[in-house]
Design a protein around this nucleic acid. Structure first.
Length: 958
RNA sequence: GCUCCCGUGGUGGAAUUGGUAUACACGCAUGUCUUAGGAACAUGUCCCGCAAGGGGUAGAGGUUCGAGUCCUCUCGGGAGCACCA
């Protein structure tokens, strides 16, 4: 027998498969359903790393499996070849980006082929191919014609190192996604895609997709839809104060408009806060603000350009003007503050410190009034409840900071001191009286206000349902001087000092619940005094007693009837800035004419080819390198035929990758980016496997493209990816991210040299769940290498004369089922372990030819080379194993097998019984009762209940 | 700070979705064979106990005949968002 040496067989079969064109996928095969299994195409960085193997060779297992299951499977690949690294490498090594990129593509193609995947190379797509980017440009012009691409001056993210604009999605923690340098802000005219056109569809379309929740959530958060209202606050004397030149007094500019998600808190608005951007706008139309205000605005805008500091201390200044709250006509001051953002909502907010954390902090800092209008509500409100208004105290003593609780010995209930208000007494009077009465202490000081809550409960002493509004204060005991308690009312009361945690436990242990632990929590964490949840309204005129949800609606309706408010949704998502001031990208196919403005290149003249440039380095002035290609630059205007110039910016590479999967369906088409017919055959993509880092960029952009092209009538699917899974990341042996500087990089080529591609694929499959990833264990691969050796030796025991083994027949049948499910679920790790279990069970038996064949078919998706070798050279088959169908699982074989039934007594396993499948409860009961191991447990005891799970267990409860 | 996910042997990880916890591997130990190799094979490998048995899935409680799995809290780790009104 020859020794298993993968190096000798793998190249041979790769060549064989390529020569026989096994993996060239037809668009249509009679009787077979099409499925496109998609993985994110690679950036040609120059070298394949282990992550590429994980990304491509594991989905290949599923692609091969589906193929064997009878589907017409397209498993395509290509290269996402434009982009910055090529330029940077080119500058570093003094080589042209195009040459560098093409060399890498050639090298990586060879590496990719060494994986033994069923990639259909005949459909390879490369974004730098003019036949490809002609269509990228064509789409841009289509979008431009329909208003989905436009040019605008905006504040952009500028990377000073890469010298180009970045999309919001490409800025991470204020740093460039690629080079990690600090991103600055710049005003520039840029080309944009109107992705906000689809803001609702981008959220709502997710509903019916089979994606991981985390990926859906990432998209939802990114679009950031919030439901709320816009409300106009009138500014009296607007004309004289803000805009002296303003003629039309009825204009909406007499107002400052705010956006809020909490219109129910409008009675609690104690100011209006506008962003520095709005203030700047007002100044530009004639607002005569104080010099302090002017300098504040200037300073905070400058600060924004320098990007957010680490110190996020909120600052602001009183603007010196007033606005009128439309709900109650109250005059409130207007402030300017940097924590209000110019680009979100209306750029102004109503200031409700009692119910917004940020406003609360700001109010504390600048000592602004806090007005509570929504109380948290505990317990269920009863219609017949009797109302009670009360005040309570968290009493502490300075000696040890312990808290005073009162124990009612009659009913064993704990409380903090306090009680009901008499007629018109104020908080201080009530609190002073109650604390004295209940504790006897006389010298104390009322400190901080801890807020008010509403509680609903049954007062058993009085036998009534009660709704209690309760205000609490922190009270510090100065000394322990006390007077005797009134014997009649308080003889059952006992005072206890304890720490805060203990007191929370005691208060929560009450049976008739009082919810007073809430005040202890607020005392411990003062930020909780600001209640930002929903609750019951107070101090809100006719809306008092309403719950927040209803009040939101009613209040906006009221404002709407006055013409000063409306329901409104606001989004975090902003349009996609696609201009890049770099060389190595797709030229934006526009011509700028001094007379006609921007005019698109005729779609017949596409592609606008990237001009060959020797000096492609970016300039500091923000002008794209393409401006240096003078011959290319100067053209005649398509409209007026006058002299004009081409747009010199190139497109963000995310544009290229937003539609590559459509091109796979029809990669050679010269008349369209893909024919409708072929897209219909393959789209939407059956399953898309890729990296988690693309959740908020690539996936969002690709969905935008699909939706836009669908809207324009070119694509059948408005959602491109039905199923999406983010795979995990392979870490170094030290459980850290692989990096050259750490020296923990695993080189796949080296591993292939040692163990072969089959072992590398199989080990990656075996090491853990595909969606988790994990550390590469150098010893781990020897496990699957040993397994493949055993498989090799096992199949070599084949002898024509041997009859089928019954043990193997049953095992093969079972594992056919299990392994199929594993692959379908991307549970490659259990798939491999099931193959190992199967071999453990059948290894010592001799099998018939057909049984060996079945075994190899189960192995084929995981280890395509060794399976093919054994299939053809040992079992002497002429037709490739990769043209075979998956073994058929025979259900009827399963039920008749012997199996173990667990016998439990009171849920504890005491014995197990070997029985035939499908055995009845009665029989099992009898066997269990007769069992010597069970008898001692149940003897002389009353059996209360028997639980029987067919073919699994019986539980005798005594 | 908010949201989501995750804590199982020395290690990677299984557990048919509420029904034998630690499958399958790695590693380790002992042994066999062998002209030392990055072998192969056999046996063992959660803890206490001679055993019967008991304990055990980060910790504490709960629901259930039965909990790694469901619920509540605490601790620890990771990811995303982060002045988004």
């Amino acid at each position: 027998m020859v020794k298993y040496s993968p190096q000798k067989i793998e190249k041979k079969w790769q060549k064989y498969w390529e020569a026989k064109k096994f993996y060239v996928t037809k668009d249509k095969v009679a009787g077979k359903e099409n499925k496109m299994l998609l993985t994110e195409f690679a950036y040609p960085s120059g070298n394949l790393h282990i992550g590429h193997w994980y990304a491509f060779s594991l989905p290949d297992i599923k692609a091969r499996y589906l193929r064997m299951k009878g589907y017409n499977v397209l498993y395509p690949t290509g290269f996402d070849a434009f982009g910055l690294p090529a330029e940077n490498a080119a500058i570093k090594h003094n080589i042209h980006p195009e040459k560098w990129t093409k060399q890498n593509i050639a090298y990586m193609t060879r590496q990719l082929k060494s994986m033994g995947t069923m990639f259909d190379w005949s459909r390879k797509v490369s974004t730098i191919d003019p036949d490809y980017y002609a269509w990228t440009q064509w789409m841009f012009i289509e979008f431009y014609k329909k208003g989905l691409a436009y040019r605008a001056i905006t504040n952009v993210n500028w990377c000073p190192n890469d010298k180009t604009v970045l999309a919001n999605e490409q800025v991470v923690d204020g740093k460039c996604d690629r080079c990690k340098s600090e991103v600055t802000q710049k005003e520039l005219a840029q080309w944009m895609f109107k992705i906000t056109e689809f803001k609702d569809e981008l959220i709502d379309g997710l509903k019916n997709l089979d994606w991981q929740e985390t990926a859906k959530l990432g998209q939802i958060n990114w679009v950031g839809r919030s439901q709320g209202a816009t409300i106009k606050f009138q500014i009296p004397n607007y004309k004289s104060q803000i805009n002296p030149n303003h003629q039309n007094s009825k204009s909406k500019n007499e107002f400052v408009e705010v956006f809020t998600t909490r219109p129910d808190t409008i009675f609690g608005a104690t100011a209006i806060v506008i962003s520095p951007e709005i203030a700047q706008k007002w100044l530009s139309i004639g607002w005569q603000a104080s010099s302090e205000v002017k300098s504040y605005v200037k300073k905070s805008l400058a600060k924004r350009e320098l990007e957010r500091e680490e110190a996020k201390e909120k600052t602001g200044i009183d603007a010196g003007i007033f606005a009128v709250n439309p709900i109650n006509n109250q005059k409130i001051p207007v402030w300017v503050a940097d924590y209000v953002l110019g680009h979100y909502g209306t750029g102004a907010v109503m200031f409700v410190p009692a119910h917004d954390q940020r406003d609360f902090e700001f109010a504390k800092k600048y000592n602004l009034p806090v007005k509570e209008v929504v109380l948290p509500e505990f317990g269920q409100k009863k219609p017949n409840a009797i109302f009670r208004d009360s005040v309570a105290a968290i009493v502490t003593r300075s000696s040890d900071d312990k808290i005073l609780l009162v124990l009612n010995k009659k009913n064993n209930e704990w409380a903090i001191p306090g009680g009901g208000r008499d007629s018109n007494d104020d908080d201080v009077t009530t609190l002073t009286r109650e604390v004295k009465e209940e504790t006897g202490y006389t010298d104390f000081e009322i400190k901080e206000y801890l807020g008010q809550i509403s509680t609903n409960f049954f007062a058993s002493a009085r036998n009534v349902e009660r709704t209690k509004f309760q205000k609490a204060y922190h009270v510090i005991l100065k000394n322990e001087n006390s007077i005797p308690l009134k014997p009649d009312a308080h003889e059952d009361m006992e005072l206890h000092w304890m720490n805060a945690q203990e007191s929370i436990k005691k208060l929560d242990s009450n049976t008739s619940i009082s919810y007073e632990s809430e005040f202890v929590k607020r005392f411990l964490q003062p930020s909780l005094v600001c209640f930002s949840g929903n609750g019951v309204l107070v101090n809100s005129g006719k809306f008092d007693g309403m719950d927040s949800q209803l009040a939101k609606k009613k209040i906006v309706e009221e404002l709407k009837s006055k013409g000063v408010g409306n329901f409104q949704k606001t989004y975090r998502l902003r349009d996609w800035i696609l201009s890049r001031q770099r060389y190595w990208g797709v030229p934006i196919p526009m011509i700028h004419c001094p007379a006609c403005g921007y005019v698109p290149v005729s779609q017949k003249e596409l592609p606008v080819k990237l001009p060959p440039l020797k000096d492609f380095k970016p300039a500091d002035d923000g002008r794209s390198p393409l401006a240096k290609a003078t011959k290319w630059l100067n053209v005649t205007c398509p409209t007026c035929k006058g002299p004009a110039q081409r747009e010199t910016d190139t497109m963000d590479t995310f544009v290229d990758s937003s539609w590559y999967f459509m091109r796979y369906t029809d990669p050679k088409n010269k008349k369209a980016f893909a024919s409708k017919e072929k897209m219909k055959q393959w789209l939407p993509v059956f399953s898309y496997l890729g990296g988690a880092e693309h959740t908020t960029m690539h996936l969002l952009y690709a969905r935008f493209f699909a939706k836009a092209l669908h809207k324009l009538g070119y694509v059948n699917a408005s959602e491109p990816f039905l199923n999406r899974r983010n795979r995990g990341i392979i870490l170094g042996p030290d459980n850290q991210k692989m990096s050259k500087s750490r020296g923990n990089v695993v080189d796949p080529d080296q591993e292939v040299k040692k163990y072969g591609a089959d072992a590398v694929r199989m080990y990656l499959a075996f090491m853990g769940p595909y969606l988790h990833g994990g550390p590469w264990n150098p010893g781990g691969i020897t496990g699957v290498y040993r397994f493949l050796n055993r498989v090799w030796n096992f199949v070599h025991t084949y002898d024509v004369k041997v009859k089928p083994s019954s043990v193997a027949a049953s095992a093969l049948n079972n594992y056919t089922h299990k392994i199929g499910i594993d692959i379908g679920d991307l549970s490659f790790n259990t798939g491999v372990s099931n193959l190992m279990k199967l071999l453990n069970e059948i290894e010592s038996h001799h099998l018939s030819k057909q049984q060996y064949e079945t075994f190899l078919k189960l192995l084929a998706p995981f280890a395509p080379h060794v399976a093919e070798e054994l299939w053809q050279s040992v079992l002497k088959n002429k037709k490739s194993i990769h043209l075979q169908t998956w073994p058929v699982f025979d259900k009827t074989l399963v039920g008749s097998e012997k199996l173990w039934i667990m016998v439990q007594v009171n849920g504890k396993v005491r014995d197990k019984l070997e029985v035939a499948g499908g055995v009845s409860q009665k029989d099992v009961e009898k066997m269990a009762e007769e069992s010597a191991k069970i008898k001692p447990w149940i003897e002389g005891k009353q059996v209360r209940k028997i639980i029987f799970v067919p073919n699994k267990l019986i539980n005798i409860v005594i």
